[in-house]
Nucleic acid binder design. Structure first.
Length: 488
RNA sequence: GGAGGGAUGGCCGAGUGGACUAAGGCGGCGGUCUUGAAAACCGCUGUGGGCUCACACCCACCGGGGGUUCGAAUCCCUCUCCCUCCGCCA
């Protein structure tokens, strides 16, 4: 059960919340007074155990300990905050307590062995009495240690990944750097008519239905019909096959709901707690991206150096509460609660991860190119990196109807950030120490936005949409989606 | 949903309060022997942390957590996971 030393509210995660959890068994059998609800500490559990900093997060802690100024400087560039001073303080506390505790444990161990070898009860008793008092001190120190480690770990989990040196410094997304662009954005002049946004185009064709989405599930939900649904399915299959056959990825079909520790491992918790759907009944979490199950495929594993890099691709639904973007992008299918995404994921050695990041971006771009849709690659500046990435590129497709560049892919190198949280390691050589792998993820691509780009780029004056050539064989040879295409 | 059985090192597997510093075996690494290999024999073997320039040393880890005890793989409580059978079911 989750019994740890009591921690004051001030030690709880900033912005987090402590969720009451139903634990009938615990309430019935446990020692606590609470009847039906237990407060759960916000500590990463792994296989049901509390995940102490002595485990994998220690490497990160050691870096903070030895380079506090660099860490603070990096956080400043990220425009992020983390309790570094608190971490340093707790770390010092921890080591002080630990030193004292271990000395006492050693003393007890030696003495206990001697007591076991004594026959004479009168001879034993004074030693037993002494060790009894040592045991009390050990218990006290252990409780202090638990408390300190608990607080230390909570603080550590608030530290975002630090940026790679090659990432340009910038405050926010407005300063992101355009790396390259392929194709010219199409304008009304190119079309010879005013291109429609997909939220008009789709319903007119009878392939997108927002009213029924609301009827079934509420705002930000939608229904696709006929050739719309078929177009998406063709895109998914074609994209998966593309990455499998041309880029050497292994297809994965993972669960779409996961345990809480998967969320911590992938870096979704604690930061994005309020953006994730969570089933309280069985304590399962709906994935917001395929990155989550794929990160955890090798959680707590030691990979063989010879099998790196491991490259996976999966199409998964993604569920997002979008609590942080209320009122933004409310029209169309650009920002929705449920969508499909083809996700690429790599486990690599530290030496090759940046090379693999470039390849990852190229793999995603190849999809844009094959679809013949203008796109560009942008690099995130430090202020727009997010919580888990050390370096990140976005790929944007031009949507002429909506009149904007649409982020269809995001490719990140998380370095050891997720590997450390999920404890994914490999042995670099026969006698080498275990090291954390690097993990990378990249959409290849996100379906609704790719659908938007296809619909808006391939639309014609009469409201019909040409099917991109590469998809036709998967759509029964259909070349044009017309308004009578519902049953097509 | 019901009943039962389990969880020990890379793997198999012994271990009911003190020599567990975890038996034995398999695998792996090194060596002896050999022209070479096999076999045989000998030795070694995990993870994390603390303290260290380093070595050495110390602490923890037998599914997780808590407890009893001078002392716990072993006893108690609790949670999780896995397996088998029955029931239900796409």
């Amino acid at each position: 059960m989750w019994s740890v030393a009591p921690v004051g509210a001030g030690n709880r995660l900033k912005g987090g919340r402590v969720r009451p959890l139903q634990r009938k068994e615990a309430a019935l059998n446990g020692s606590g007074e609470s009847r039906w609800y237990h407060e759960r500490p916000l500590v990463l559990p792994v296989r049901g155990r509390v995940f102490y900093p002595r485990r994998c997060t220690m490497i990160d802690l050691r870096y903070i300990r030895e380079h506090p100024d660099q860490v603070k400087e990096a956080l400043r560039k990220l425009h992020a905050e983390a309790p570094i001073d608190e971490i340093l303080h707790l770390d010092a506390d921890r080591r002080e307590v630990l030193g004292e505790l271990e000395a006492l444990r050693h003393k007890r161990r030696v003495a206990s062995k001697q007591i076991g070898q004594m026959d004479d009860q009168d001879q034993r008793q004074p030693h037993i009495d002494e060790m009894r008092s040592v045991g009390v001190r050990i218990s006290d120190l252990e409780e202090r240690l638990r408390d300190v480690e608990h607080r230390l770990l909570q603080a550590l989990y608030l530290v975002p990944n630090l940026p790679h040196e090659s990432v340009p410094v910038g405050a926010d997304e407005s300063e992101n750097v355009i790396i390259r662009q392929e194709g010219e954005p199409k304008t009304a002049k190119d079309f010879n008519f005013e291109p429609l946004p997909h939220w008009e185009l789709g319903p007119r064709l009878g392939i997108l239905d927002f009213e029924r989405g609301v009827k079934l599930s509420g705002s930000r939900f939608y229904v696709m019909f006929g050739m719309g649904s078929r177009l998406q399915r063709a895109l998914i299959q074609w994209t998966l096959d593309f990455h499998i056959e041309k880029h050497g990825y292994t297809e994965v079909y993972p669960p779409f709901v996961v345990r809480e520790e998967c969320m911590w491992g992938a870096g979704q918790l604690p930061k994005f707690m309020d953006n994730i759907y969570h089933d309280v009944e069985d304590d399962l979490w709906l994935i917001g991206t395929g990155e989550i199950p794929m990160t955890n495929l090798h959680r707590e594993e030691i990979l063989d150096a010879s099998e790196l890099p491991k490259k996976y691709v999966a199409c998964t639904p993604c569920f997002r509460r979008e609590k942080f973007s209320a009122g933004r992008d409310v029209r169309g299918i650009k920002r929705v609660h449920q969508f499909e995404k083809v996700e690429m994921y790599k486990f690599t050695t530290p030496e090759s991860s940046y090379e693999e990041l470039e390849k990852l971006v190229e793999d995603a771009e190849a999809i844009c190119r094959a679809l013949e849709i203008p796109h560009r690659v942008t690099q995130m500046v430090t202020g727009d990196l997010g919580f888990t990435a050390a370096k990140k590129y976005d790929i944007e497709m031009w949507a002429p109807g909506s009149g904007e560049w649409l982020e269809v892919s995001s490719c990140s190198n998380c370095e050891a950030f997720q590997a450390r949280r999920a404890e994914i390691r490999y042995r670099p050589g026969p006698d080498a120490r275990l090291e954390f792998v690097h993990t990378l993820n990249g959409s290849g691509l996100a379906l609704p936005r790719t659908m938007i780009a296809v619909l808006e780029n391939y639309q014609q004056a009469d409201g019909s949409v040409i099917v991109p050539e590469v998809l036709r064989s998967r759509m029964g040879g259909v070349e044009i989606i017309k308004s009578d295409g519902i049953n097509g």
